[in-house]
């Protein structure tokens, strides 16, 4: 367990957030396919499911999903740039840029999702 006491820097947080957001996207995609397949059961069944999906808990999940997508996308670009030897020296600053960008757009988009149609 000693290794977990290693000093956590920006690189470690970027790695953890990237993994967690990636796992969240896999869970979402599985759920999405499961929801979509209800179309074949007819319009009434699908509309009923959509009413459930409109509940606040699922809307909050969608807002969290947006934040995960934003971070995973932006950090993916960051990692690809660093693997191309671009911005390596500024890896701490670029993490905070990615984090702040995801947070701002995630909160703005999350508000829109939560309060849409209200």
């Amino acid at each position: 367990m000693r290794r977990y006491r290693y000093r956590w820097g920006e690189g470690m947080w970027a790695y953890i957030f990237h993994r967690v957001s990636g796992a969240a996207l896999i869970v979402y995609l599985s759920m999405h396919i499961w929801v979509i397949h209800h179309i074949q059961e007819g319009q009434a069944a699908y509309d009923n499911l959509m009413r459930i999906m409109d509940k606040p808990v699922f809307r909050m999940g969608e807002a969290a999903l947006l934040a995960a997508i934003l971070f995973h996308s932006f950090n993916g670009v960051r990692v690809a740039c660093m693997d191309s030897r671009f911005g390596m020296r500024n890896y701490r600053a670029t993490f905070w840029l990615v984090f702040a960008g995801s947070a701002v757009l995630g909160i703005a988009g999350g508000m829109a999702i939560l309060f849409a149609g209200k």
Binding site: G11, A14, Y15, V79, M82, R85, M88, Y91
Partner: peptide, 21 residues
């Protein structure tokens, strides 16, 4: 995974991360 702990840890201020890239 481009975590870059190696760069911070090197006491000789080498850049293993840049070598890997």
């Amino acid at each position: 995974r481009t975590i870059y702990n190696c760069e911070e840890a090197c006491p000789k201020l080498l850049k293993p991360n840049e070598a890997i890239a």
